[in-house]
Lab assay of single mutants.
Amino acid sequence: MQIFVKGLTGKTTTLEVEPSDTIENVKAKIQDKTGLPPDQQRLIFAGKQLEDGRTLSDYNIQKESTLHIVWR
């Protein structure tokens, strides 16, 4: 499925993911596209910070959802 990651600059990155992907895995995909290391990424969805060990489905993140990224 496709999801979007929007940064503070307003730039949006598209990712191809599975609902079973962990947040850690998603951060690795973001690094592949942007070069930003996972330890500098904070992902937010529906006002919650996403924890590395959880999956996208744990947070009810579905296709075409938009996550927000904040740099540490």
Results as ranks from 00 to 15, higher is better:
1 M>T: 03
1 M>F: 15
1 M>P: 01
1 M>V: 05
1 M>K: 02
2 Q>H: 13
2 Q>F: 11
2 Q>G: 04
3 I>E: 01
3 I>V: 06
4 F>W: 09
4 F>Y: 15
4 F>P: 01
4 F>A: 04
4 F>H: 10
4 F>V: 05
5 V>A: 04
5 V>G: 02
6 K>R: 12
6 K>T: 14
7 G>E: 12
7 G>S: 11
7 G>H: 13
7 G>W: 13
8 L>V: 12
8 L>Q: 10
8 L>E: 10
9 T>W: 12
9 T>Q: 12
10 G>P: 07
10 G>F: 09
11 K>M: 14
12 T>G: 06
12 T>A: 06
12 T>R: 08
12 T>C: 07
13 T>V: 15
13 T>W: 15
13 T>Q: 09
13 T>C: 06
14 T>W: 08
14 T>L: 13
14 T>K: 08
14 T>R: 10
15 L>S: 00
15 L>K: 00
15 L>Q: 01
15 L>W: 03
16 E>V: 09
16 E>P: 03
16 E>H: 13
16 E>Y: 12
17 V>R: 00
17 V>M: 04
17 V>F: 04
17 V>L: 04
18 E>L: 15
18 E>R: 13
19 P>F: 06
19 P>I: 11
19 P>R: 07
20 S>R: 09
20 S>G: 11
20 S>L: 11
21 D>K: 01
21 D>M: 10
22 T>Q: 04
22 T>G: 03
22 T>D: 03
23 I>N: 01
23 I>V: 09
23 I>L: 05
23 I>A: 02
24 E>S: 12
24 E>D: 09
24 E>Q: 09
24 E>N: 09
24 E>C: 05
25 N>T: 15
26 V>T: 04
26 V>P: 00
27 K>S: 02
27 K>Q: 02
27 K>W: 06
27 K>T: 02
28 A>P: 00
28 A>K: 14
29 K>S: 03
29 K>Y: 07
30 I>A: 02
30 I>G: 01
30 I>L: 10
31 Q>V: 04
31 Q>F: 15
31 Q>S: 13
31 Q>M: 08
31 Q>D: 03
32 D>W: 11
32 D>V: 11
32 D>G: 08
32 D>K: 13
32 D>E: 14
33 K>R: 09
33 K>D: 05
33 K>V: 12
34 T>I: 12
34 T>K: 03
34 T>F: 12
34 T>Y: 11
35 G>D: 04
35 G>I: 02
35 G>S: 04
36 L>W: 12
36 L>R: 06
36 L>G: 05
36 L>K: 06
36 L>S: 04
36 L>C: 06
37 P>H: 13
37 P>M: 07
37 P>F: 10
38 P>R: 14
38 P>H: 10
38 P>Q: 12
39 D>Q: 14
39 D>N: 12
40 Q>A: 08
40 Q>K: 10
41 Q>H: 09
41 Q>P: 03
41 Q>W: 15
41 Q>N: 06
42 R>K: 10
42 R>I: 15
42 R>W: 11
42 R>L: 14
42 R>V: 15
42 R>C: 09
43 L>P: 01
43 L>N: 00
43 L>Q: 00
44 I>M: 14
45 F>N: 02
45 F>D: 01
45 F>V: 03
45 F>A: 03
46 A>W: 07
46 A>P: 01
46 A>K: 14
46 A>R: 11
47 G>Q: 04
48 K>G: 05
48 K>I: 15
48 K>S: 08
48 K>R: 11
48 K>F: 11
49 Q>C: 08
49 Q>P: 11
49 Q>V: 13
49 Q>N: 09
49 Q>I: 15
49 Q>Y: 12
50 L>N: 00
50 L>C: 03
50 L>K: 00
50 L>Y: 00
50 L>S: 00
50 L>T: 02
51 E>H: 08
51 E>K: 06
51 E>I: 08
52 D>Y: 04
52 D>M: 05
52 D>E: 11
52 D>L: 05
52 D>N: 12
53 G>V: 07
53 G>R: 10
53 G>I: 06
54 R>N: 09
54 R>I: 05
54 R>L: 11
54 R>Y: 14
55 T>E: 03
55 T>A: 05
55 T>N: 05
56 L>S: 00
57 S>C: 04
57 S>L: 11
58 D>I: 02
58 D>S: 14
59 Y>R: 00
59 Y>P: 00
59 Y>S: 02
59 Y>D: 01
60 N>A: 09
60 N>P: 03
60 N>T: 05
62 Q>M: 11
62 Q>S: 11
62 Q>H: 07
62 Q>R: 10
62 Q>A: 10
62 Q>K: 11
62 Q>V: 14
64 E>D: 13
65 S>Q: 08
66 T>W: 09
67 L>V: 08
67 L>F: 03
67 L>C: 01
67 L>H: 01
67 L>G: 01
68 H>M: 14
69 I>M: 12
69 I>W: 03
69 I>G: 03
70 V>Q: 09
70 V>S: 09
70 V>P: 02
71 W>E: 12
71 W>F: 11
72 R>V: 15
72 R>T: 15
72 R>M: 15
72 R>E: 15
72 R>K: 13
